[in-house]
C-alpha cells in the first residue's frame, strides 16, 4: 500500500515481476514486518498495548519533523536545523504561554519555527546557496536563540501551561494525543503530496528542476515553501515534546536531525530528490522507534544500541536499493 499502488493496478498488461522494483516499492514494509516478527520473538513485553503506545508517543516528535524533512528531501534538499528549531519551539512556547492565551502562544511558537525555515529557504531558493551549509548555520543559530531565550535553564510555564501538559499526557480515540496529532499530520501530508499541485511539483522539482522551470513554474517559491513547512513542523514537534514533559528546554531535539533524516531514508526516499512517499516515511519513523524499543526491552546497553542502529540503517538502505544490487 504505497502511493503508487494505483499505478501498478492500472498496468496489468506489463507487470512482469520485477524484484528491484518490488523492493523499492515495498522494501520499507518488508523491513518493518520482519522487525515486528523479531521484536515479538525477543520479548513478550513488545506487543503490549502499553509498549506500543509508548513507542508511538516517543516517536511523535521525530515523526512530525520527518514529514517536513520528506518534503525538503523530495526537492533534493536537506534540513539539518530541525532539532534546533524544535528546541526553539519548545522554549518559546513555554515562555509565551506565560503571557499570551494558549492558542496564540502556540501559533507564535510555530510561527517562529516557520520564520527560521523562511530564512533558510530564501537563502537556498533565491540565492542558490547550498542547503547543507545554510541549514547547518540555522542549526547553530536556532539552538543559540533557544539558549538565550531560556537562559540555559529549563522553563516551567506554571499554571498557564497546565492545559498543554494535559493534552500531551492524555489520550484520544485510544491513542496518546501527540501520536494522534502526528498521524493526522501524516494523513494531511499524504493528501497534499499525492493530490495537490504543490505536492506534485515538489516531487517534480527534485526529479528534474530544469524541466519544471521550463514548464513555466517558479521553482524558487516551491523550494522556499518546503523549508518553511519543515521549520513550522519542527516547531510543532518542539511543542509536542514540551506538552509531554511540561517543560520548555533548549536541549530538546539535540541530534534529532540525524534520526529524522535516517527515518526518511529508511522510508525509501532518495537524497537525490524526487523519490519518496508519506506512508513509507511513516513506516521509516516506526522502524526507527521499534528498533530502539526492542533493544531497550532486550537490555542492550545504550552505547551498543548506537552501533546496531548504524548497521540497521545501512541494511535498510541496501534493501531499498535492491534494484541496483540485482542489476549487476
Amino acid at each position: 500500500m504505497t502511493d503508487n499502488a494505483a499505478t501498478i493496478n492500472e498496468t496489468p498488461a506489463r507487470s512482469r515481476f520485477n524484484f528491484g522494483k518490488a523492493f523499492r516499492q515495498y522494501g520499507t514494509v518488508i523491513i518493518f514486518v520482519l522487525l515486528l516478527i523479531v521484536a515479538q520473538e525477543q520479548s513478550d513485553a513488545f506487543l503490549t498495548e502499553r509498549n506500543v503506545m509508548n513507542v508511538l508517543r516517543q516517536m511523535s516528535g521525530i515523526g512530525v519533523m520527518a514529514i517536513g524533512m520528506l518534503f525538503v528531501i523530495l526537492t533534493r534538499g536537506i534540513d539539518l536545523s530541525v532539532g534546533s528549531i524544535a528546541a526553539l519551539g519548545s522554549v518559546s512556547a513555554a515562555v509565551l504561554i506565560q503571557s499570551y492565551p494558549l492558542p496564540v502562544a502556540l501559533l507564535m511558537a510555530i510561527g517562529i519555527g516557520a520564520a527560521c525555515g523562511l530564512i533558510s529557504g530564501a537563502l537556498i531558493a533565491f540565492f542558490r546557496l547550498p542547503a547543507f551549509v545554510i541549514t547547518l548555520a540555522m542549526m547553530t543559530a536556532a539552538r543559540g536563540f533557544a539558549l538565550i531565550l531560556s537562559n540555559g535553564q529549563p522553563i516551567m510555564p506554571g499554571p498557564a501551561g497546565a492545559p498543554l501538559q494535559a493534552f500531551g499526557t492524555s489520550f484520544s480515540l485510544g491513542f496518546p494525543n501527540p501520536a494522534v496529532l502526528m498521524i493526522g499530520l501524516f494523513a494531511l501530508a499524504f493528501i497534499i503530496l499525492n493530490y495537490s499541485r504543490f505536492g506534485r511539483l515538489v516531487k517534480a522539482i527534485g526529479s528534474n528542476e530544469e524541466a519544471v522551470r521550463l514548464s513555466g513554474i517558479s521553482v524558487p517559491w516551491y523550494v522556499l515553501s518546503v523549508y518553511v513547512i519543515s521549520g513550522a513542523l519542527a516547531a510543532v514537534a518542539g511543542v509536542l515534546i514540551t506538552s509531554r514533559s511540561g517543560v520548555g528546554s533548549a536541549s530538546v531535539g539535540a541530534g534529532n536531525e540525524l534520526d529524522v533524516i535516517a527515518a526518511v531514508v529508511i522510508g525509501g526516499a532518495s537524497l537525490m530528490g524526487g523519490r519518496g512517499g508519506v506512508i513509507n516515511t511513516f513506516i521509516g519513523v516506526m522502524i526507527l522507534g521499534v528498533i530502539g524499543n526492542i533493544m531497550n526491552l532486550a537490555g542492550v546497553p545504550g552505547y551498543h544500541q548506537q552501533v546496531y542502529l548504524g548497521v540497521i540503517i545501512v541494511v535498510a538502505v541496501l534493501i531499498q536499493n535492491g534494484s541496483t544490487l540485482f542489476r549487476r
Binding site: 499505478t7 506534485r200 511539483l201 516531487k203 517534480a204 526529479s207 528534474n208 530544469e210 524541466a211 519544471v212 521550463l214 514548464s215 513554474i217 524526487g274 523519490r275
Partner: peptide, 16 residues
C-alpha cells in the same frame, strides 16, 4: 534534461 521529468508519470508531465 529539460523537456520532461523522466521518472514522473506521463499524465503529470502532460498537465505540468
Amino acid at each position: 534534461s529539460q523537456g520532461v521529468v523522466l521518472d514522473m508519470e506521463i499524465r503529470k508531465n502532460a498537465t505540468m
